[in-house]
Amino acid sequence: MNPYLAGFIIGLMLIAAYYFSGEGLGGSGAFKKVVVATINGVNHNYALNSAYCSPLVSEGKSPLNSWLIFEIIGVIFGAILSAAYFGRLNFKVGKSPKITNKTRIIAAIIGGILWGIGSQLGRGCTSGLVMSGMAVNALSGYIGLAAVFGGGYAFAYFFRKLWI
């Protein structure tokens, strides 16, 4: 699909999210709810006493009963629909042909861990912090934009063998 059309569709969803629900699109928020729900399920008392979990579990409502979880269920459906339409629904490892699958998988796990920590400390990821922030001229969105992409360009040289 034309990248500008794909961007326009995402932009319309962003407007709809703010219009109906008063919040932007999210990615990492759903991960957080799953983690908190898991901790709460295993040890409710621990969750109640944890400063990280307690805001989401103290009301007795499941952390999974949230807008971001339902949005991500939709994202999964949407991605599968689109991939099926474009014939991209297949098991494979996306990587540069110059590295092994093992290298790629290890780098992906480490990258994921960094995003997990960063998204919690920074109050969101590319979707919730940067894109949704930019859509309402929030200062946090532009700080996030500069830090994520600035950081990416600063580190790109050192890890170029992973990609080129």
Binding site: G94, I109, G112, W115, G122
Partner: peptide, 22 residues
């Protein structure tokens, strides 16, 4: 925290090749 976390996520982008939503 947003600045620090953003740089951590930038490193995560280069290593991991994705962000959480993607």
């Amino acid at each position: 925290p947003t600045l620090i976390a953003g740089i951590v996520m930038g490193l995560g982008f280069i290593l991991g090749g994705f962000c959480p939503g993607t």
